[in-house]
């Protein structure tokens, strides 16, 4: 039940690389994609506002007496100002269509918003992400975002009622990722792409190098922790990895609780003050046992497994 639920909320697509290695790709959640989009729209807006401010600054320099005087002269623009206006129109166009394009063509395949939410664009089915794919998915963006946005804004105006059918129709595009298994938006469908998680994981410390792990003895109390075959046989890989997480997080209360639980299971009476050494020793010996089994082709998924 629980496994089915996680698979639903976080579907993984296994991709086999040319080297024959199975590489699980996790589809990005709709939430993080929406968040990325919002971030990007904010960035575009900020950039446009900045460009506008700079260009207005330049423009007011081109007109003697400032921009206010311009309207009095009728509609005659000085050539320098004309140039500024053209630059503005072209930049606005570039921001609307070029922003997503340029960033998604980069080595990270992601806009700044996507980078911040830890996702990226990839070719569906594991091929090379090509320029044509990125072009296609961003050309469709227009009817998915700009038009529905416009339609929603016009709904708030007076004569909005007649536009309801139009808005509903456009919303189908905007909500497209909710209607398919791979969370494709219309642009992804056309381009042959999808959006996946791009995790950046740091390499954690080795756990089996500490003194208590290697020798099974505690440096603080000098107690020796040696576990017998049947004491190690009670747990499987799932419990081992839970224990690993507890050791890495190293939160005192969690250490005590887990220490107590393991002692109860083994029928030991839990002491206090030496939990970490105990757990490190147990972790190392349990892992040693399970990994030895693995090499023999015998795996034990969790404590319920035989």
């Amino acid at each position: 039940m629980a496994a089915a639920k996680t698979a639903r909320s976080d579907p993984a697509r296994v991709l086999v690389t040319p080297e024959g290695i199975a590489m699980p790709l996790r589809l990005a959640s709709r939430g993080s994609r929406f968040g990325a989009l919002l971030l990007d729209l904010v960035f575009i807006t900020i950039a446009l506002v900045l460009v506008t401010l700079v260009l207005v600054g330049i423009a007011s320099g081109t007109v003697p007496g400032g921009l206010d005087k311009l309207s009095e002269d009728g509609f005659k623009l000085p050539p320098a100002l004309e140039f500024v206006v053209i630059v503005y129109i072209l930049i606005a166009f570039l921001f609307r269509y070029g922003y997503f394009l340029a960033f998604e063509l980069g080595p990270r395949g992601a806009t700044p918003g996507k980078r911040l939410t830890g996702i990226r664009v990839a070719a569906r089915g594991g091929g090379r992400l090509t320029t044509e794919m990125v072009l296609a998915r961003n050309l469709i963006r227009d009817i998915e975002i700009m038009l529905p946005l416009g339609a929603l804004l016009s709904l708030s105006s007076d004569e909005g009622l007649s536009k309801w059918p139009m808005a509903a129709w456009l919303l189908i595009f905007a909500l497209f990722p909710f209607f398919n298994r791979d969370r494709l938006r219309a642009g992804d469908l056309i381009a042959g792409t999808w959006v996946v998680e791009a995790p950046k994981t740091k390499l954690e410390q080795v756990l089996s190098t500490s003194h208590s792990a290697t020798s099974g003895t505690s440096t603080t109390t000098g107690a020796s922790y040696k576990f017998g075959e049947e004491e190690l046989a009670v747990y499987g890989e799932y419990e081992l990895q839970t224990l690993e997480r507890v050791l890495r997080e190293n939160r005192h209360e969690a250490l005590i609780a887990v220490h107590e639980a393991i002692c109860r299971k083994l029928g030991w009476s839990p002491g206090a003050g030496d939990e970490r050494a105990f757990l490190e020793a147990y972790y190392t010996q349990l892992r040693h046992r399970l990994e030895s089994g693995m090499r023999m082709g015998k795996r034990k998924a969790d404590k319920f497994a035989g």
Binding site: T201, Q241, E244, R245, R295
Partner: peptide, 16 residues
Amino acid sequence: TSLDAATLAYLESLVQ
């Protein structure tokens, strides 16, 4: 051969 979840996660992310 390894049951070190953190190392496996690191390798998967790096290979990806």
